[in-house]
Amino acid sequence: MVAPADSTPRPRDIFVRVRALLRICTGSFRDLIPIIVVVAFFQIVVLQQPFPNIERVVVGLVFVVVGLSLFVQGLQISLFPLGEGMADAFARKGSLTALLAFAFFLGFATTVAEPALIAVAAKAAEVAGTAGFISDTEVARNDYALNLRLTVAVSVGAALVLGVFRILKGWPVHYLIIGGYILVIVMTGFAPPEIVGIAYDSGGVTTSTVTVPLVAALGVGLAAAIRGRTPLLDGFGLIALASLTPIIFVLAFGLVV
């Protein structure tokens, strides 16, 4: 922010803005504190040696905190109210096709934007490149990472469609999850072993900063709008499905590639 030098300064305005920025930073910083404390403890007490490239890491951590704060803040002021309002509106509107289409695109769009998934996909592509699983070029790696992200995003979209359908029908969530597990186990037998670890991890990665609030809004809004469904019981379970289907889809991705 550039402080106005010669125009009339409005100290209160600036003060308020700085405070808002600091507040969102503390949120991301809280995510980071446990990691810093644990790493520092092990460095000082156990390893008793300086950390390599400490300056770069510290600068990078500041980048992470500020970047994640801005990212989340941006979502909160623009996309979340929009998405929540729409989830609610669609749940009440009653058109099944429109609702299912919305659920799919919501899952897809939020997952493509998920920072944790970007990180893991990039790492997976890098490792796959070095191991000679794909050709070790910038283009091939970017391709692989992008395809991986798109696969996961489609699978989360599919999970939401299934999950919304489940809430509408009132099926118990266990059957879907147990069925999904059986499918995962069967597919693990056929998929190339190189993809299995990445596939299992992608299940846990998808449901993070961006996806969870919007998906929870959809589930709770839907369950509240339909008679005979309790928001807490039926609203949950969407996230569970959204962490199960990526495993299946990424295993399938490994079979195809």
């Binding site: 600068v59 951590l61 980048f63 992470v64 970047g67 990212f71 990180a119």
Partner: peptide
């Protein structure tokens, strides 16, 4: 802006 900063920090620090 936030996502860009985060990705740079990811490579440099995390």
């Amino acid at each position: 802006v936030g996502l860009t900063l985060f990705l740079v920090g990811l490579q440099e620090a995390l």
